[in-house]
Amino acid sequence: MNLTGLHHVSILTGKAEKNYLFYTKILGMRLIKKTVNQDNTESYHLFYGDAKGNPGTELTFFDIPHLGRTHKGASSISSTSLRVPSTDSLHYWAKRFEKLGVHYEGIKKRAGRDTLAFEDFEGTKLILVADNNEKGVAPGEAWDGSDVPKEHGILGLGAVTLTVADAKPTVRVLKELLGFYYVGSYPSLDGDYPDVEVYATGEGGVGAEVHVATRSDLPRERLGRGGVHHVAFRVPNEEEYNEWAKRINQAGFVNSGKVDRFYFRALYFREPNNILFELSTDTPGFAQDESVETLGERLSLPPFLEPKREEIELRLRPLEFEESK
């Protein structure tokens, strides 16, 4: 029973309209689901992914207007990678970011791969990483509905970096509870700090990695807009999900219990450095209530919220996406 990679990463935004413009018009990702936060239906939950909404390709955003900024620090998911086809793609993106005024760094090596770090308008730290035909968990399919050439388009999620004051308890959970294995390490690019440790699951590769950075000098992060709320790992089916739920309980971790999100099944718990992990199923997927061709075009509600659609829509502020298409 193995986790097979990263499922999604969920982030906080204070402005859904600008968020939509950045991730679809600048990054060329597809809005695959416009729905609500199921725990607070007055808030939007936006999912961006690849052409078909494949698991392992989604960045999701909870829209919380007027949310304060993130005060960055330890006990955080400090960066999220996005896969692109090649090193040539990184050069394309550097030119695109320069043209569009996106803050970015030069191309640098991380874990032996060519990468390009950048930030969105709320300071979310993102890293483009070149696949270069690397073996491991398969990428998704780039969306061809934007002006980003498909040969340079975003293919899905790459590694997330966890920044913690003490790596040992986090690593223990990754290895002993979740079944990750040590791959190697690379020098910190932030200064004279311990090497960043690399752990992988399943078939490995950048789509199945967690990088652990030790920063005992930092205060604990205070989460706000642009901050990462949680990272979710892939469980291939509901049968294995049920077994994982038992395993988390037997290990004594306080957790959410099994949660039906309709598009996937979820279970949440915090590791010892207080970072929120989620286990999510690949099934049943995002095309249950919309066709693949029309993903993200309407407000989608799971069946248990559909009877309240009129009430929910009255409380939601309108999003003016159409004018910017």
Results as ranks from 00 to 15, higher is better:
257 G>D: 08
7 H>M: 03
46 L>K: 00
65 P>K: 03
85 P>M: 01
188 S>Y: 03
19 N>V: 12
262 F>K: 07
129 V>E: 00
185 S>A: 15
20 Y>A: 08
36 V>P: 00
15 K>I: 06
188 S>P: 09
69 R>Y: 05
92 Y>I: 06
202 G>V: 12
165 A>V: 13
211 H>R: 12
72 K>I: 09
308 K>W: 10
64 I>F: 13
62 F>L: 11
72 K>W: 09
221 E>M: 14
255 N>E: 06
234 R>H: 05
170 T>R: 06
301 L>G: 07
253 F>S: 09
247 R>I: 12
67 L>V: 07
175 K>N: 14
29 M>V: 14
39 D>K: 11
148 V>L: 02
306 E>R: 04
61 F>H: 08
259 V>S: 06
249 N>Y: 11
146 S>W: 05
166 D>K: 12
149 P>R: 05
77 I>K: 02
320 E>K: 14
267 L>G: 11
186 Y>D: 12
253 F>V: 12
105 E>L: 05
37 N>F: 03
185 S>M: 10
34 K>G: 03
57 T>S: 04
123 G>Y: 01
104 Y>A: 13
239 E>S: 13
252 G>D: 08
263 Y>M: 07
42 E>T: 15
243 E>W: 05
78 S>Y: 03
60 T>D: 01
84 V>N: 01
209 E>D: 08
89 S>N: 03
172 R>F: 13
173 V>T: 15
245 A>D: 05
300 S>D: 08
240 E>F: 03
256 S>M: 07
88 D>L: 02
302 P>I: 09
57 T>W: 00
7 H>N: 10
174 L>D: 07
33 K>H: 07
313 E>W: 04
291 S>D: 13
59 L>K: 09
95 K>Q: 11
324 S>N: 15
207 G>F: 08
44 Y>G: 04
296 G>T: 09
19 N>T: 14
60 T>V: 09
45 H>N: 05
56 G>K: 05
307 P>N: 01
103 H>D: 10
281 T>G: 07
12 L>N: 10
162 L>D: 01
131 D>K: 03
271 E>G: 13
278 E>L: 09
143 W>H: 11
186 Y>P: 12
216 S>G: 10
293 E>H: 13
201 T>M: 02
